[in-house]
Every structure is written in structure tokens, then in C-alpha cells.
Computed example of a mutant assay.
Amino acid sequence: MTAITDFTVKTADGSEESLAGYRGKVLLIVNTASKCGFTPQYEGLEALHRKFGERGFEVLGFPCNQFGAQEPGDAAEIASFCSLTYDVTFPVFAKIDVNGDGADPLFARLKADAPGVLGSKAIKWNFTKFLVDREGRTVSRYAPTTKPAEIEKDIEALL
């Protein structure tokens, strides 16, 4: 089975990046939005990134405008917002779709690996989080309401 780190994604500048550079790391992959009630979670995500980064942990953010049009900006606006408002230093990639026929292949895989409540595959809202182990296997899926700090013990167990 293909590891999550075998996927290629688009960066904020539109170029392609292989996730192979994250092999051997624990990843928290999140669909994000700048104008959502959960947007303050950027602060908690950044705290996790800083706390565990030196031990081989990365947060990867993927902006998405599919939920209430809460990520209307272009890549430059999103990057500026994340940096200026929440001092985000983890990678924020190109805006993507996470549901439907145009869903990014990475998120299609994450959803298949870690279904939601009652086995549903669809992502329900912004800030759904997926925890991936060092071997590139999806370990857990967390609801948008799950605060980043609540995931610490699960990250710690994989590190």
C-alpha cells in the first residue's frame, strides 16, 4: 500500500512537492480556513509544531474553501494571514478541495484510511485533522471540534 509520503501536493506558489521529504516524520495533516469559527486552532497547531518539531513532527496545512466559503483568499492572502495573525511557521500548501469529484488525492486517501463517524468518508468541516505515523500510515482522524492540545498524547505516543 502506498504511504502518505508517496503523494505529491501543490505548494502555495503552485509548484509540485513530493511528501517524500516528510518520510520518517509524524504528521498532522489539516484542512484549514482563515474565516472559520475554528480558525483560532492555528495557534494550537503552531504550538504543537514548535513543541514536537525537533523530535520529527510536522503539521501540514491545506486551505479549503468548500465549507461556507471560509477560505476565499488567494495563496498570498492566506500565507499573509497565517503568518501575521498566528505566526504560523508550518507549511501551508495550495488551496484544495477535500470532498467531491475534485478532491485532492491525498485527502481522498486520508478519508479512506480513517473514516469519520459511522464510517462516513466525507469531511464535515474545516480543521478536520489526520495523524500519520513515521511509516506514512494514517493512524487517526479528529473532528474539527478536537483542539490541537487534545492530540498531544497521541503525537507523543508516535514519537
Score class of each variant (00 low, 15 high):
149 A>L: 12
159 L>D: 04
153 K>D: 14
105 P>Y: 09
7 F>M: 02
29 I>M: 04
148 P>A: 07
75 A>G: 08
15 S>T: 15
93 F>C: 12
72 P>T: 05
78 I>Y: 03
80 S>D: 14
136 G>N: 04
101 D>R: 05
111 K>W: 04
139 V>S: 03
6 D>Q: 12
72 P>G: 06
147 K>Q: 14
100 G>C: 05
144 P>H: 04
135 E>T: 14
128 T>C: 13
6 D>V: 10
59 V>E: 08
102 G>Y: 00
43 E>V: 04
31 N>D: 02
107 F>Q: 09
84 L>H: 14
80 S>C: 12
44 G>I: 06
108 A>W: 02
130 F>R: 05
91 P>H: 08
39 T>W: 05
4 I>D: 04
13 D>S: 13
14 G>K: 12
98 V>L: 11
54 E>N: 13
65 N>Y: 02
126 N>D: 10
20 A>G: 13
8 T>M: 01
138 T>E: 03
47 A>C: 02
18 S>R: 09
122 A>T: 11
101 D>C: 00
90 F>C: 06
3 A>M: 11
12 A>H: 14
146 T>C: 11
26 V>F: 07
2 T>Y: 07
25 K>C: 00
158 L>M: 06
159 L>C: 11
47 A>K: 15
64 C>V: 03
128 T>S: 13
65 N>I: 02
120 S>I: 07
38 F>W: 05
30 V>C: 07
154 D>V: 05
147 K>M: 11
127 F>I: 05
155 I>T: 02
111 K>Y: 08
143 A>E: 14
50 R>K: 15
26 V>D: 05
126 N>T: 12
80 S>Q: 15
32 T>P: 05
48 L>I: 01
60 L>A: 01
61 G>P: 09
2 T>D: 11
39 T>K: 10
50 R>H: 07
153 K>Y: 03
88 V>A: 04
140 S>W: 02
109 R>T: 14
136 G>E: 04
32 T>A: 07
96 I>M: 06
75 A>I: 10
40 P>W: 06
145 T>M: 12
156 E>C: 06
157 A>R: 15
120 S>G: 14
27 L>R: 02
105 P>W: 06
159 L>R: 03
94 A>I: 00
115 P>A: 05
28 L>S: 08
104 D>N: 15
24 G>I: 13
146 T>A: 13
136 G>A: 08
80 S>Y: 10
157 A>S: 15
14 G>I: 11
7 F>L: 07
155 I>D: 06
13 D>M: 10
126 N>E: 09
150 E>I: 03
76 A>Y: 01
69 A>M: 09
156 E>F: 10
88 V>E: 01
84 L>Q: 15
120 S>Q: 15
6 D>G: 08
14 G>D: 14
25 K>N: 12
45 L>E: 07
151 I>G: 07
77 E>F: 03
122 A>C: 04
44 G>D: 04
80 S>F: 09
86 Y>S: 08
42 Y>D: 00
7 F>C: 04
102 G>P: 00
113 D>P: 03
133 D>V: 10
30 V>W: 01
149 A>H: 11
140 S>A: 15
37 G>W: 12
128 T>V: 13
56 G>M: 06
77 E>Y: 05
135 E>G: 12
58 E>P: 00
108 A>K: 15
49 H>Y: 12
142 Y>F: 15
25 K>R: 14
121 K>W: 00
24 G>Q: 12
101 D>E: 14
72 P>F: 08
8 T>I: 11
35 K>F: 03
2 T>R: 14
8 T>A: 13
